[in-house]
Design a protein around this nucleic acid. Sequence first.
DNA 1: TTTTGTGAACTAGTTCACAGCT
DNA 2: AGCTGTGAACTAGTTCACAAAA
Lengths: 223, 223
Amino acid sequence: MPGRNKGKFGNDQVSELTAGRLSVYLRCLNALDDEGTKTVSSKALAEQFHLNAAQIRKDLAYFGEFGVRGVGYYVKELKRHLRQILGLDRTVRVGIFGAGNLGMALADYPGFRREGFVIVGLFDAAKAKVGQQSRGGVRIFDVADFKKMVKKEPIDIAVVAVPAAAAQSVVDEVVSCGVRAVLNFSPGTLKVPAGVRVKNMDLTVSMESLSFFLARGDADGRA
Amino acid sequence: MPGRNKGKFGNDQVSELTAGRLSVYLRCLNALDDEGTKTVSSKALAEQFHLNAAQIRKDLAYFGEFGVRGVGYYVKELKRHLRQILGLDRTVRVGIFGAGNLGMALADYPGFRREGFVIVGLFDAAKAKVGQQSRGGVRIFDVADFKKMVKKEPIDIAVVAVPAAAAQSVVDEVVSCGVRAVLNFSPGTLKVPAGVRVKNMDLTVSMESLSFFLARGDADGRA
DNA sequence: TTTTGTGAACTAGTTCACAGCT
DNA sequence: AGCTGTGAACTAGTTCACAAAA
């Protein structure tokens, strides 16, 4: 076992695309593990989940030599590695900004809890909402108290679900409190300093891009 | 005016990335128009919204010669062209599948209405929900009635917000009813026949990819 | 034999840089 | 002068194909 093979401390700049695929691989492995599969080859994984075998191998090989030639990958072991690579071996703490329809729905989204994300709370500027809680029991705090709260209840990822006009100021605030990752549901681009990651979930852009393909009639079974 | 310059009927396979950017350009032009700006150069547009000038020109030039050398683009005119290219000059009809927290929140999302999307209704399998409506007044129908309804109330885009286990069967159903565009919020990959577009909004993948960058500490101000 | 890990080849996407129009 | 539209150069991402390991 030659062990670590790339980039010493694992730094070489991994693309967004690769990061997303690692998460997809983990989901596939969870499914295989649940059905009791012990080992899986990149080819089998690729065929079952419509991926490319070489790409799976390359993505994984980037982080170490996890496979066994002639055999494939041990499902449980690879799962463990992926969880560690994705930072899911420790608790990831999430704050949701904006306790409107979308923010409340996200707070109760069962998928978050599943992989060990902890929803610390909802944060809103409307005094009337503060003190209430979501159907699932996530409490709503005053966004003005966030600065104080974050010291005792640190947050790893801020989910932004406020109206477009408020998004930039909310992000400026959370970034100034040390948050370095943002999942943004508001339309438009957020400006953040280097060292902060933003992932945009732009509903309008997605819908309009589907509309575009419908309009030109060259839709194609691409995901 | 040499008119149409590329690919006869405008077919040459435009990438997902380009389609998304067209939507972003439209949003930028709306903002400029609202503040009364009459013309804008690709350079000014790029600087103001942190895009690349050459890319804007290339994306637009693909669909025609909309610019005027020495001047730039007429904001209103380019807006009109983009709305037409994105298929927003006609009504885009949307059905939302799954009347849970997320589906209900999406049904009332103000951004959808703004660019002319019409929410035809929510569709759910739970009889208890059928006949109810969202806070914003979107009615909930029985998903079993969709096949009949779609004949009188056709749907262009299906938004899938059902639990993971139900997602594939819902998509099979809507595709068999002629829907050719799907915005999927459920985790995992959907299988659809060629000719159907799927756009995935995978919350878990987004969160885990943020977690990944936090874990390796090489976050970077990339959107 | 099977299947990994990986250089090499290829494909897609972005940016540069400039001829040519206004 | 200013700015578009676009070929050429470059960069990023994917897939191929095979030597080496089990």
